[in-house]
Structure formats: C-alpha cells, structure tokens
Amino acid sequence: MDGLILPGNVTAVIGADAYRFIAARHRLPGVVAGFETSDILRAVLMLLEMIADGEPRILNEYTRFSDDRGNAAALAAVREVFAPRDSVWRGLGTVPGSGLGLNEAYAAFDAGTLLDGEVPPVPDPPGCICGDVIVGAREPEECTLFGGRCTPSRPAGACMVSGEGACAAHYLYGGGAA
C-alpha cells in the first residue's frame, strides 16, 4: 500500500491528529478527503506529491469541515456514552479495542446485550467476496454475484448496500455491467 485517503466525515469529529501515527510509525502518507470528485482527485494528487518527495505525512484536504483537533463537543459526547470494545471488521476479523460500544452507565440501552442470542448472525451469501473487496485483494467484478444476483436495488452482499459500498460504487460508476 502506498498511501491512504482518510474519511472526511470521521475526521470532522475526531480530528486529523488521530492519524499522525500512520505516517510516523508506518511511513505511510495519508490525506483527509471530502466526498466530491474534486476532493478525491486533489487527495490523490497530494498523496502522489508526498510519495514523490519521499516524505510521508498526514495532510487535510477537507479543511472546510475538519481540522487537526476535531469537534470537542462531539468527542465529549462520544466519551460520555461509549467505551472502546473489540470489534469484528469484514475482511479483517476481530481487532482488539477497535470499536465502540455503550459504556456501563448506558448498558441498559445496549440492544446488543439485551437481545444477546435472540438476533441470529447473518452470514454472507455463498459466493460473496465482500471481505476480499474491502481489503483490496479482489475487484468486485471478480465476484460471480456482481451485477447479476447482486445489484444496488437488490443487494446480496454488504458492499452493494448504499452508495458508499465498494461494490455499489463499482456498479454505479462502471455502468452496471458485470
């Protein structure tokens, strides 16, 4: 991997400083980007410039809505209600402390605990390669469901749900062809 395009919406809450370790520890450049076509193009340009200079840093392209430190009020609300928790990530598995869950004070509202065992897990449909798509190991077009059994109006796998899913984006911007 050569660089990261970082999520502008998340950064509006947590601030770009949260990503500094990626450049410092892993020598990877990152750019916080917005969601317009021009945002993405600009982020790619900034990444390429850093790669060319051999100087990985974390830069912010989405300064109209985010800064280094984030939204103090939003962060305070998150801290009041949530606590870090192990979380399962599609394609990656369980990563310790990588998610948020309601903390003890709000446990009475935690549907995950209240309904524990009552909500059956929903496995990916046979043939779905969402996990591989998300980690960039395979292209959506390599999936036998893509564009046939799995489309944005009738998704079979998670990546086809909502315009933000990797497969949905491939479908909508690639002309829908399998």
Binding site: T151, P152, S153, G175, G176
Partner: peptide, 24 residues
C-alpha cells in the same frame, strides 16, 4: 438496454458517468 441495469445515468462536469437507480 439490459433490463437488469438502471435506465437513467448522470454525466458529471468532468465527464464521468454514474447510474441513478430508484432507491428502496
């Protein structure tokens, strides 16, 4: 064209195209 593909597409100022399906 293909009855499985949404019939309306949108072309951006940059010349990229995307499909504009009905939502749920």
């Amino acid at each position: 064209g293909d009855p499985g593909v949404p019939p309306v597409s949108v072309e951006s100022a940059m010349g990229t195209a995307r499909l504009l399906p009905l939502l749920d």
